[in-house]
């Protein structure tokens, strides 16, 4: 499990990353630990999967990906694993989840698609439908972004 220092490191790593030659030394100093300790813990988190990747998050509208569609699909239970694994390889899909269906909302599989235009999103969804043979889906285009942040773990 995570100890107190782990939580302090995670909180600190969510702060502005120093754009200097030795950023980890600066962060370690603020934490009052050695740079080696910090780096070895960070590598440990990556090994255990607590950190999925390390790098920059882009503002997708600024870099030209103006359209995003959440696509909800109806996938037969016995095909969820197969289709999930197949689509996970597709770099155009950023988020891919099987979810609980509801009586008045039978969709049980969700793909998040980012593209330059709405039309591109539609073409991508059609492509997924063709490749998987799935017929029933809805495209939920966003019309307004009310909130989009990175989660601030262990800060509340």
């Amino acid at each position: 499990m995570l100890d107190e220092l782990d939580k302090r490191i995670i909180v600190m790593m969510q702060e502005e990353f120093p754009l200097v030659a030795e950023p980890y030394r600066e962060i370690a100093e603020k934490l009052g630990i050695s740079e080696d300790e910090l780096l070895s813990r960070l590598k440990g988190y990556r090994q255990s999967g607590k950190i999925r990747k390390m790098g920059a998050v882009l503002r997708h509208r600024e870099v030209g990906y103006a359209a995003n569609a959440l696509c909800a699909w109806i996938v037969p239970d016995e095909r969820i694993q197969e289709i999930g694994e197949m689509l996970a390889k597709d770099t155009i899909i950023s988020h891919l989840y099987a979810r609980v269906p509801k009586p008045d909302w039978p969709y049980n599989f969700y793909t998040m698609i980012h593209a330059h235009t709405r039309k591109d999103c539609k073409v991508i969804a059609q492509g997924i439908a063709e490749r998987t043979g799935l017929q029933e889906y809805v495209m939920l285009f966003s019309t307004k972004e009310w909130k989009k942040i990175s989660m601030q773990y262990f800060k509340d």
């Binding site: 990353f17 999925r52 990747k53």
Partner: peptide, 12 residues
């Protein structure tokens, strides 16, 4: 504003 943040992506 092209980069929103730099840092690790945690698995919630």
């Amino acid at each position: 504003g092209f980069i929103r943040r730099i840092g690790p992506f945690f698995d919630s």
